[in-house]
Design a protein around this nucleic acid. Structure first.
Lengths: 205, 205
DNA sequence: TAGATTGTTAATCGATTAACAATC
DNA sequence: TAGATTGTTAATCGATTAACAATC
């Protein structure tokens, strides 16, 4: 569907545009300038981002909010339902199980895994916790597309391999470690320590 | 100290290099190629990143791990202690209060804030929870440099303003909203929904 | 000295910004 | 028609990569 190779930052901005658009009624018309202002970019950037995927606007007018929302939802593949599994039901993992941004129509955390016998078999935040040893086996029979890793760094690589074995096609990794996985698997890292360290760098100048 | 304007991605990589270096003994010599391999970049990138800040290597040999670690620690200003405050002691906020990456020598979450009277006055994960109304007042008397926002999106802007009023110089924002703050305040956003949405985009191709 | 790797400059690549013809 | 804003091409900017003289 995209006309050319799409930069990752463009996809990230589409997600931001979509969130902004949800605040407006579907029949309102919004210009690239208005939208740029709201999300903190430029009108040229907004138009360029959309241009990777098609022509969604009305020259001389702007973009119809309802139509634009639909298009972005389709581009981001949020018009289908994604099944997720989370591994590592510690404090951060439990918080993410309950996180509203992960609990939406489009996303369903179907399974959680942990190694702690005290947690296995329990239901935490509405999700049943299974034995992490059984990841490949249980995933295969559940059509899970995305794995979320919230384990300690030391075991994250091993868990990633089990997730891949179980058939996930994407991994969202919160463990502070660079995972090595097959290149056909999409990996996104959320590196909280790095964010904080980068922040204080800029404060020290 | 930096010779030129430093790209943000370079600072982010310094944080990653540092984490990798911690696994080696101080007197070992490591080449830019070795380090690049470990963190998944190129030797040229590694050398270029360091070159913004000085000459830390030995031509013909490589970098002494101990020396390189010290230099990066100094660059990132991790040789001083940073005082943090966290606002919004929900599930995510509580998880971050306990997060090992935020609980280190260099970082001290001194205060937490919430609006819930059931939480105010309590001690959660070792941190005393104060009334969010009193942010400016309490921060001023506590030398807090960094604020972490883990509130719902609707109140995040208002909280950001109170943090700025209280004198923070940097904000790490987990609320899914683009904050508007003075430009002398450094803002980093951690946007979990965006990460997940971007991930599934790539799975849908 | 020969071999290896740094630090730096120049070349390349890719993303952002500017400009404007097309179109409502 | 006049005014406004899109979609797209070209210009600019900035980061990555390649190449190599300097140096251990």
């Amino acid at each position: 569907m995209p006309r050319f190779r799409v930069p990752e930052v463009t996809v990230e901005r589409l997600s931001i545009y979509l969130r902004a658009l949800k605040k407006f009624s579907d029949d309102r018309i919004i210009s690239s300038q208005d939208l740029a202002e709201i999300v903190g970019t430029t009108d040229a950037q907004v138009r360029k981002d959309f241009a990777y995927f098609g022509e969604f606007g009305i020259p001389g007018q702007g973009y119809r909010v309802g139509k634009l929302k639909e298009e972005i939802i389709h581009i981001l593949a949020l018009d289908k339902k994604w099944n997720l599994a989370l591994v590592g039901v510690g404090k951060l993992g439990s918080a993410l199980l309950a996180y509203p941004g992960f609990r939406r129509e489009e996303f369903k955390i179907k399974l959680a895994f942990d190694v702690d016998p005290g947690k296995i078999g329990k239901i935490i935040e509405g999700v049943r916790v299974e034995d992490a040893k059984r990841i490949p086996e249980i995933l295969s029979s559940n059509q899970i597309e995305v794995g979320i890793i919230t384990t300690p760094a030391e075991v994250a690589q091993e868990i990633a391999e089990k997730l891949v074995e179980g058939g996930v096609r994407g991994i969202l990794n919160f463990a502070p470690v660079r995972l090595v996985i097959p290149e056909n698997i999409k990996l996104k890292n959320v590196d909280l320590s790095m964010e904080l360290e980068t922040l204080v760098y800029f404060l020290s100048r």
